[in-house]
Design a protein around this nucleic acid. Structure first.
Lengths: 248, 248
DNA sequence: AAATGGCCTTGACACAAATCAAGCCGAACC
DNA sequence: GGTTCGGCTTGATTTGTGTCAAGGCCATTT
């Protein structure tokens, strides 16, 4: 829970930290339609190519840290990223998980409000924040799109507030599984099994529980035949029942 | 906790539900510099006057309800509003309290994501959402301002997520008192005493606690001489100690 | 193939906050 | 001026989740 992984060095030359070949350009990017880039026209995509830096990192890499100056915003192309804040005594609260298509930097903060760390192998598009800010000023439709993303982020946060403030362990776990399934469905990873790349500890820190409670609750849901636990994921057997649980 | 208060009728004639004289216009509005209107120039304020509807309502009035079509956005001029969501079985989670200068409708949702209910006597500026959307498209600086507000809302939500996910009762109450004090300070109600217009039940539903735990925790903080309980509010005696508590 | 370590599960017990219950206080009302 | 009622506090008890502890499983290392 305390291991922060290697800190990203920002002064490295393009490509020297890479673990996979770069994507040639934005026009052929398979994540485009899912991401903020969907708001860009053909010509804009070409200019975008010049500022965007495609990067990939292994699990546990710290993309950026809470409190650090926000020099870049990111669009996730592949993998899972945990976003969290730490209390002085080490308690951790995961704010969210970013997956393919998600944008980090919606609020356009000067300083990062949370730490972002790769859960598994990830690929991201890194965009200098200053340049992106200029684009926003020049392209109202991009600004509008960003604001839509902000609205969605506000909704998700409020859902999480209700979950953390008023739901019990069983309701929290059920809601988490369903919402993660929903998000995976949007990015078209059609599969009966929901892959869960994050650890039980991550889930616990996301749901405001302990790892033991998460484990016990998953076992309980499995015992009740609502889900089946499989390697690196779970399968939902009774969606309706689970939804009823999740909604309180 | 279940009392919803009178539902607002939207088809009433201007003024017929009012409990205080209207504000003449936006140019003389004392809340302007605190609100989204601060982004508007002199001329824009004049056009704003034509679409803005000044209204006031007594305590417990429901401004709008979760799930209802969002025909208006609001700017709060006076009083306190609780924003909450209900679970099917009646559990309530207060998402936030809106005070003077706050804007309701940052996300520009089609449908309200929560219910808004007057805590005490309130005055608001009501703006048709469709018209406001047009203004946003025409005035990039207004859009930019709205997005800034969205960013702040995201931050506040994330703070609340950390509070609800990982803080104990004492830390929650301390954080609430300090953050409410901070917000009151911004609207220049300089006073050693922090007025708390909302009930203990409201505070409990905001902090994910029960009314008894809130009451006991406030008593405990008072016993430890960190605060003093006064009619309709509290006074902070030891800010530093309280901050250390609140931050975990 | 034995040893190590990370991750997960399960059991026993502890505790913070919830629940249940009683009573206080001030405002509103007859 | 007594009664009622809503909001708040405080005490006793319960309970859901946290904490502590042990062991299983699997991948990796030696």
């Amino acid at each position: 829970m305390k291991s922060m992984g290697p800190i990203l060095q920002d002064n490295a030359k393009p490509g020297e930290r890479d673990h996979a070949p770069h994507i040639a350009n934005c026009s052929t990017c398979t994540t485009r339609h899912l991401s903020i880039c969907a708001a860009l026209g053909h010509e804009e995509l070409l200019t975008f190519d010049h500022v965007v830096q495609h990067r990939s990192f292994p699990a546990k890499t710290v993309l950026f840290e809470q409190g650090a100056k926000a020099d870049f915003v990111f669009s996730v192309s592949e993998g899972t990223i945990r976003l969290f804040r730490l209390l002085p005594d080490g308690r951790r609260q995961i704010i969210g998980f970013a997956i393919k298509g998600d944008f980090l930097g919606v609020a356009m903060d000067e300083v990062h409000e949370y730490t972002a760390e790769a859960v598994d192998y990830i690929r991201v598009c890194r965009i200098p924040r200053a340049g992106f800010a200029v684009m926003l000023d020049e392209k109202p439709h991009l600004m509008k799109k960003l604001h839509q993303l902000a609205g969605r982020e506000i909704h998700n946060s409020q859902d999480q507030i209700v979950l953390l403030g008023r739901k019990n362990a069983e309701e929290r776990v059920a809601a988490f599984l369903l919402s993660f399934r929903e998000r995976l469905a949007r990015i078209a990873t059609k599969s009966v099994t929901i892959p869960l790349p994050m650890s039980r500890q991550d889930i616990a820190d996301y749901l405001g529980l302990t790892i033991e409670t998460v484990s016990r609750t998953i076992s309980k849901l499995a015992r009740e035949k609502l889900i089946v636990v499989v390697p690196d994921g779970i399968r939902i057997l009774d969606v309706d029942h689970l939804m009823a649980l999740a909604d309180g």
